[in-house]
Amino acid sequence: MAIMNKKSKISDEIPTSSMADIAFLLLIFFLVTTVFPKDSGLRVVLPEESEEVAVSQRNVLHLQIQPNGVVEVRYGESEDLQQVPASQVESIWRTNVAENPNLIAAVKTHPDAPHSAMISVLDALQLAGAERISLQLLEEI
């Protein structure tokens, strides 16, 4: 038996000293590769049901979104429409809100207009810092 033991130079044990390295490698690999999908979007708070607030027409900026994405801007009670692309809404809002801080943006979207057209107007308003926004459906007149 003593002779046998001396002949065998190779250990029959699995080397465990590198196990920690392997485990930490796996741990760090999974920590790094795990991605949690982040939620992102435009925040709005809907009005409560039956919450009707009477506002003076003087404080309303009407933004009517047509199916082709063109925005018609109407200020208060005036009848004249100004047709602009959605990218100009931001500067229009900034100039108007500087004159009237109580301004409310009434975003009226045509039923056939794509969702993205409304989003681009809402985007422009939020970029301009607007907080008083009302989202409505455009009724045919």
């Binding site: 992102s40 979007g41 709005v44 989003i119």
Partner: peptide, 12 residues
């Protein structure tokens, strides 16, 4: 609005 959930995020 009818359900009461008023906090909405338009995912973009």
């Amino acid at each position: 609005k009818r359900s009461g959930a008023v906090y909405v995020v338009f995912a973009t």
